[in-house]
Amino acid sequence: MGLLGYVIRRVGMSIPTLLLISILVFLLVHVMPGGPLAMYAHQPNITPAQLKVIAHQLGIDRPLPEQYVTWLGNMLSGHFGYSFTYGVRVVDLIGERMPPTLLLMGLSFVIAVVTSITIGTISAVYHHTWIDRLLSGLSYVGLGLPSFWLGLILIEIFGVHLGWLPISGMGSGSFTSVVAHLVMPVITLAVLFVAQEARYVRSSMVDVLGRRFIVTARAKGLTNGATVIRHGLRNGLIPVVTVLAMDAATLFGGAVITESIFSWPGIGRLFLGAVLQGDYPIMLALITLLSGLIVLANIAADVLYAVIDPRVHYA
């Protein structure tokens, strides 16, 4: 009953947290200036009377507590209400837009992690040599590149001048078409992440490679590669993994810009459009979903500690 009881207790405790988040998010979205009627401001032949009718249809003329209860009901029923812009269920919109974003972010994350570990480790192994200085210099350049600028430069070179890669969209749906369309957005999104994380990896690895157990490993006759990979990396990456996990969230911010430049049909553009058009149901659904995922991930991580490390017990 120990672990199960703990899980039930944590899930139970997360309900008031999620409820509080939902209230805060709801209030924040509604105090934002603009609002959904702004998108009607330039509609030909619109009249003040018609604007009132639209406000009533959207339900935004009702008291905030009443609007909140309605929205909460929609959220609990699983469809998150109807988009003010598209007139369709928000859950359907998210279902359409989430997979492209997950593909873009996931691939960028994997490539960025592998690349940053490789670059950081090489820098650490050859620290204070020209290799280290070159890789560190490149990292700083990467850090200084705004993603929108890098994206446009890639488009100019590979899309316009060389004509090797498609410029926008996600392609026709075939595997090769999707891969071709992915190249430039993934590079754009991954570069900043690599530049950032390679610095952490280098610093951590430099620290670890100077420890006595590394000297011992070498004294035992292990090759340099085996020492670095088996003993260095396993210890050097412990603090890095935490940073990687935390920084992964910043990828979402980058995805909003990257999706806009490359017209990638993902959740970032949906969210941006919703903010610009005051589409409350989409904004609320996406922010609440992300908040809920973070809460659940925390619970899952705590539970996994107990599963993997037998010394951890939950009473």
């Binding site: 997979p99 492209p100 691939l107 993994v241 899952a300 996994l304 500690y305 993997i308 490390d309 010394r311």
Partner: peptide, 27 residues
Amino acid sequence: KSRSMFRVRSAATAVVLLGVLAAASGC
């Protein structure tokens, strides 16, 4: 204990990545 946590976080990261790729495959 650090190694255990490392394994936990690595496992969690792997789960997330698998989820990402699985969802993306349905794009």
